[in-house]
Amino acid sequence: MSDRIFGIFGICLAVFYAWATLQIEESFLSDAVGPKTFPLIVAAILGLSSLIIALKPDADPVWPPLGRLVEIGAAAVVMVLYAELLPEIGFILATAAAASYLTWRLGTRPLSSLITGALISLGIYTVFHLILGLSLARGPLGF
């Protein structure tokens, strides 16, 4: 069933891809092939293989229960927040927060996860910034 849904999604993706390709405005200076041919071939094979996936599905994978899916979604949200906040609040704070969250959700107890997160953040800062001289995001506090 999963494969059937995925195959249909793939066909939609291929159609969308082909449509988007046709929207490309061609320049008046073009080679014999042009910028559209290759993406159209890609879209065609993409659609064809999706069709086969939908028609001949494999056995379903073991999907995690809803709670686990929420877990993965939440982690993704934390990572997005991390990406957005990194330049605002600086590397050490952002990283400590994100690392604490991840280690907590992976099974560390709440209090020790705060410590673990802080240590990970400081450790990376020491190795990559202080020793290797990599420039990391600088927050209002200067680190």
């Binding site: 991390y82 330049p87 992976l106």
Partner: peptide, 22 residues
């Protein structure tokens, strides 16, 4: 539970280090 957050954070550091863009 300790290793994976390190992997994630080092990945972020590496990519941010190349382009500096969120």
């Amino acid at each position: 539970r300790i290793l994976m957050p390190i992997v994630a954070m080092v990945s972020f550091v590496g990519i941010y280090g190349i382009s500096g863009s969120s």
